[in-house]
């Protein structure tokens, strides 16, 4: 009896600790940031958000993240397909390399892009000769976003392709479908949920990216200043109100995306 009593207290203590940790670490800060930005009511929030530099930064982030996501959809689908469908020398090595952007610190990723495309590099000087700039301009930001979100689509598409029933595809061929037709009518629909959930994850990651971008973007307000760098600048210049307001915009957007990903996934599992 004594033993049971003690066990109960122990497990109660454990539960409380874990749940407190969870709520204090994750939930409270997020409530805090919404609280901070609305603390003095709608007026100041609106003022911070309607600062042209603020919404220009958010719009720029959206635009570049969409471009990066589209690039990733194409690259990811192609690479996921090649890695699963074809056997070729070096396939396993490439397959392990896919995760490199997850393992590599983002600041290191940014530095690599800076070195490769910067004004002193081969590519950079070539581009400059042709009359357009890469580093410190929009293309470099897109490259950085593509780099950090590279694995998402591939990793979402691969398991679906592996599960794909070969007989369905063979049936299509037997019925006289061409390779292209079989791809678009049988294989592509199977890959689609993976592509869409991978793309959404990549998009929300691209919206949030900071480390790789801050090093390669020129961070010129209104031109190459993206939202997360804008927030950082506001914190540095001691304006937590403005930082919190833009954060709330970005956060709400990300939450909606995350929720959509969950919806897509649960619908797939429910099917």
């Amino acid at each position: 009896m004594n033993n049971l009593f003690r066990n109960r207290w122990w497990s109660f203590g454990f539960r409380t600790t874990i749940m407190l940790y969870f709520i204090l670490l994750i939930v409270l800060p997020i409530i805090g940031i919404y609280g901070q930005s609305f603390r003095s009511g709608w007026g100041p929030f609106w003022e911070s958000v309607s600062d042209p530099l603020a919404w220009k930064a958010v719009l720029l982030t959206l635009k570049l993240a969409i471009i990066a996501t589209i690039i990733n959809i194409f690259l990811g689908t192609m690479i996921g397909w090649s890695l699963i469908r074809y056997r070729f020398p070096g396939r396993r090595l490439l397959n392990s390399l896919v995760d490199l952007p997850f393992a590599l610190p983002t600041a290191v990723g940014g530095l690599m892009i800076l070195l490769l495309l910067g004004p002193n590099s081969l590519v950079g000087s070539l581009a400059q000769g042709l009359g357009f700039d890469i580093v410190f301009h929009e293309p470099a930001i897109v490259v950085a976003m593509v780099f950090v979100t590279f694995p998402f689509v591939i990793r979402a598409v691969q398991p679906l392709l592996e599960e794909l029933d070969k007989s369905e595809e063979e049936a299509a061929y037997t019925l006289g479908a061409s390779k292209t037709r079989a791809f678009f009518q049988v294989i592509f629909p199977t890959m689609l949920p993976g592509i869409s959930s991978g793309a959404m994850l990549a998009f929300s990651r691209a919206l949030a990216e900071f480390g790789a971008v801050v090093l390669v973007a020129g961070n010129i307000p209104g031109k190459t200043l993206i939202a997360s760098v804008y927030i950082f600048g506001e914190i540095e210049s001691d304006n937590p109100q403005g930082a919190a307001a833009v954060s709330v915009m970005l956060l709400t957007l990300s939450f909606v995306i995350l929720w959509a990903v969950n919806l897509v996934q649960s619908r797939r599992l429910g099917k």
Binding site: I231, F232, P240
Partner: peptide
């Protein structure tokens, strides 16, 4: 996952 690291720091 949905929170930008900068925002995480800001919080």
């Amino acid at each position: 996952y949905a929170v930008s690291p900068v925002i995480g720091g800001l919080m």
